[in-house]
C-alpha cells in the first residue's frame, strides 16, 4: 500500500532531489556530530587527567545526543510539513491533484508517509554519531533502538499536526507559523500550565497531607507533550522511573495513580489518538470545496 501511493512516490522523488532536504540532513547531522565529538573530547580529557573512566559521563553523552536529536527533529518537522498541502495550493497544482481519482485520505496518507520517510532517513543517518556512546560501553543497542523508535512515533504526532495545518492553509508561511505555535504550545505551553500555580504563587495555603491529594487536572495536559514523553522515556532507560511524578509532584503532596504509573504508554496513546484526529481534520480540509 505504501509504495503504491502515487502521492508518496511523487513526494519522495521531488524532496530527495531538493536542496532544502540535503541542507536539512547536513545541518542536522553536522550539529549532532559537533555536539557528540565535543562531549566525547571532554570525556577523554577527563579520563586522561584522572586515569579513570567516568561512566556517568557516557550516560550524559547519550542523554545529550538523544535529547538534541529529538529537539532538532521536532524543530525540523513543522518546516517539513508546513508546505506539504498548502504548497500545492501555492504552486497551483492542488486542483489538478484533487481532480484525479486520488481520495483525500490517500493524499494525506501519501504526504504523511513522505515526511515519515524523511524522519526515518534522518534518524538512520544519525546512527554513526549516536554510536559514539558505544566507545566505552554502558549503553545497550536496545536503548538506542528504543530512543529512535520513540522519536519516530512522536514525530508521527507532530507531522500529523503539521499536515493538518497545511491542509487548511492557503499559504505555507501561515501553515508553518501555526505549526510552530502548536509545537511551542504542546511542549513549552503544557509545561507552563503544569507549573502555572507555582509561577503565579497560587498554591493553596492549607496544610496539605503529604501524598494524599489527587493530581489536579491541568497537569494531564502534559500527556500531549512529546518532549515530556521522550524525557520520561530517556529517564526510564537510565533508571529514573519516577521522573514524571517528581516533575508534577515536586512537593510530594499528590497521590500517584495509574496514569503516572504508566505515563509513557498512556501519553503515546493520547498522542497517537491526537495524530489520528489531526489527520481526519486534514482530510476534511482537502474535502472542503470552497
Amino acid at each position: 500500500m505504501i509504495i503504491r501511493n502515487p502521492v508518496y512516490i511523487k513526494e519522495v522523488r521531488a524532496s530527495n532531489r531538493s536542496h532544502r532536504q540535503i541542507s536539512v540532513f547536513l545541518i542536522f547531522n553536522g550539529l549532532l556530530a559537533i555536539a557528540g565529538l565535543y562531549v566525547l573530547g571532554k570525556i577523554i580529557r577527563g579520563m586522561n587527567q584522572e586515569d579513570v573512566v567516568n561512566y556517568s559521563m557516557i550516560l550524559q553523552l547519550y542523554m545529550i545526543l538523544v535529547t538534541m536529536e529529538c529537539s532538532m527533529l521536532f524543530l525540523v518537522l513543522p518546516g517539513l510539513t508546513a508546505g506539504s498541502i498548502s504548497g500545492e495550493r501555492e504552486k497551483r497544482t492542488f486542483d489538478s491533484m484533487v481532480s484525479t481519482l486520488l481520495t483525500p485520505l490517500s493524499i494525506v496518507w501519501g504526504k504523511l508517509l513522505a515526511v515519515m520517510a524523511t524522519v526515518f532517513i534522518l534518524l538512520i543517518s544519525s546512527l554513526p554519531v549516536l554510536s559514539l556512546v558505544f566507545i566505552f560501553g554502558g549503553i545497550r543497542y536496545a536503548d538506542i533502538l528504543i530512543s529512535i523508535g520513540g522519536m519516530f512515533i512522536l514525530s508521527f504526532y507532530i507531522a500529523s499536526a503539521g499536515i493538518c495545518f497545511s491542509a487548511w492553509g492557503n499559504r505555507s508561511l501561515v501553515s508553518a507559523i501555526v505549526s510552530y505555535s502548536f509545537l511551542f504550545f504542546v511542549t513549552g505551553g503544557t509545561l507552563l500550565i503544569s507549573r502555572l500555580t507555582q509561577i503565579l504563587g497560587l498554591e493553596s495555603d492549607a496544610v496539605l497531607v503529604m501524598g494524599e491529594q489527587a493530581i489536579p487536572w491541568y497537569h494531564y495536559f502534559l500527556l500531549c507533550n512529546p518532549i515530556f514523553t521522550f524525557y520520561a522515556l530517556l529517564n526510564m532507560q537510565v533508571g529514573s522511573r519516577d521522573v514524571v511524578l517528581s516533575f508534577i509532584n515536586y512537593q510530594n503532596e499528590y497521590q500517584p495513580n495509574a496514569v503516572t504509573e504508566h505515563w509513557i504508554f498512556i501519553s503515546l496513546i493520547v498522542q497517537t489518538i491526537m495524530a489520528v484526529i489531526f489527520l481526519w481534520i486534514a482530510i476534511q480540509g482537502i474535502k472542503n470545496k470552497r
Binding site: P6, R92, S96, T100
Partner: peptide, 24 residues
C-alpha cells in the same frame, strides 16, 4: 481538467509526471 496554470510539478521529469497522474 486542465487548469489555467496547467498544474505542473516543476521538479519532476516528464516521465515521472505522467507516471504520477496515470497512477492517480
Amino acid at each position: 481538467y486542465i487548469p489555467d496554470n496547467f498544474g505542473i510539478y516543476e521538479n519532476l521529469t516528464v516521465k515521472e509526471y505522467m507516471e504520477f497522474f496515470s497512477a492517480s
